[in-house]
Amino acid sequence: MNNLPYLIPARVHTFEEEIKKSLFITQLAHTDGVEQAKAFVSRVKGEHPSARHHCWGFVAGRPGDSMLFGFSDDGEPSGTAGKPILAQLSGSGIGEVTAVVTRYYGGIRLGTGGLVKAYGGGVQQALKGVLTLEKKIVTRLSLELDYAMVPVVQVSLSQFSGVEVSTYYQERVSMVVEIEQRYVESFSQIIVNKSGAKVKINHLDN
């Protein structure tokens, strides 16, 4: 379900490994969307301009959303870098994540199997050490209600860990609240039932 929370990286995490004299530097970062993912790849390339390869993969949305997958072998043999990187990311349960594996070539060829292991393994190790946060999918609702219903709404809101964003007291009360999408239907039903359908509830665009 697209309204359920999911994990995202809390900050950039780096894992380094030397394999047969080649140095592999894996960096993981939170990237919200394809443009941020590409920008992170460019940033890493700028940090290591003399490296032979910068292979990468990203999951630019929620985990499992294959419409927002991307990867590149960046000059390594086809299928030996980008796909193993993406395979680790897509199986991690973490969303909005980009991995860039920078390789400083050490003069010894690893072969296709060795490359798959090096690139996929580096990301696997980096994922073990990355700190994550839970991203909640929230939405805003506008409510029009009588004064007597304000405490009822506030109590119901707190039951779903919602937030009262703003409240204006005029002839009736206008309130804007923020709540996780997965709770909107249940919250709305409680308010409708307790007010006898006298509270107007509208969705606001985020």
Rank of each mutant, 00 (worst) to 15 (best):
N3L: 05
L4K: 07
P5G: 08
Y6M: 04
I8H: 09
H13S: 15
I19C: 10
S22N: 09
L23G: 03
G33E: 06
Q36T: 06
Q36V: 06
A37Y: 06
V41L: 11
S42Q: 15
P49A: 10
P49K: 07
G61L: 11
S66I: 14
F69S: 04
F71E: 13
F71W: 10
F71I: 01
S72M: 08
S78F: 05
A81R: 12
K83Q: 13
I85P: 10
L86M: 07
I94W: 04
T98F: 02
V100G: 09
T102F: 12
R103C: 10
I108D: 00
T112C: 03
G113W: 05
G113Y: 09
G114P: 07
G122W: 04
G122C: 11
G122V: 06
Q125G: 01
E134N: 08
K135D: 02
I137F: 00
V138W: 01
E144S: 14
Y147E: 12
A148T: 09
P151S: 02
V152T: 15
Q154H: 06
L157A: 03
L157K: 04
S158H: 05
V165R: 13
S166D: 15
Y168S: 15
R172F: 06
S174R: 13
S174C: 02
E180Y: 03
E180W: 00
R182N: 01
R182V: 04
S188T: 06
I190V: 15
G196F: 04
A197G: 00
K200T: 12
N202D: 10
D205H: 08
N206H: 02
